[in-house]
């Protein structure tokens, strides 16, 4: 008799487990893929500067100190959204931010910076998206934090907000500043 009633519990337990998996799984955002670059050396690049094709800018400019790489484009709506936050971060003047202008037109990108303000110390121009592939970029905006040792510490996929900056970036930045 006891055995009989236990048998009816089996589907209930299985159903409960299923609900548990869905409860956790459905709260995750499938579009956020953890970058395999985290903890590895930042992929080196040297590209034309957006403002002046004769000038090269790249990873070597930041050797020995932490920096940010923000991937943006004028066709990217999220980039427009986060621009104010990027300007705020630039005003803090704590860590230099480089822009990677991804698959864009030079004239449009320069116009954007002139109109909305320029949070970047330099902007690398990547119209064919080759450097972006090296960095595993799949959707702008994306923001990387690179440590003083040249390793990628964090990647933010999607719009940067002051909350994300304080919660995810500042503690890592403090740690890498202390280490250098």
């Amino acid at each position: 008799m006891i055995k009989q009633s236990l048998r009816y519990l089996v589907p209930a337990v299985l159903f409960g487990a299923l609900v548990g998996f869905f409860f956790i799984g459905l709260q995750k955002d499938p579009s956020e893929i953890r970058s395999p670059l985290i903890g590895k050396s930042a992929p080196a690049f040297s590209l034309e500067s957006l403002g002046d094709p004769a000038v090269r800018v790249g990873t070597a400019d930041f050797a020995g100190r932490p920096w940010l790489l923000n991937v943006w484009a004028t066709w990217c709506g999220g980039c427009r959204q986060e621009h104010e936050t990027l300007l705020e971060i630039a005003r803090e003047n704590r860590v230099p931010m480089m822009g990677l202008n991804w698959r864009d037109e030079r004239a449009l990108a320069l116009q954007w910076l002139a109109q909305l303000g320029n949070p970047y110390v330099s902007v690398a121009f990547d119209p064919e998206g080759r450097t972006a592939i090296d960095w595993g970029v799949y959707g702008a905006p994306e923001t990387f934090l690179i440590g003083a040792d040249g390793k990628v510490l964090h990647k933010q996929i999607g719009v940067m907000t002051p909350e994300i900056w304080r919660r995810d970036f500042l503690p890592l930045l403090a740690a890498t500043e202390e280490g250098s």
Partner: peptide
């Protein structure tokens, strides 16, 4: 590709 984008 997996070095850059992961197994996904």
């Amino acid at each position: 590709l997996t070095e850059r984008y992961g197994d996904f």
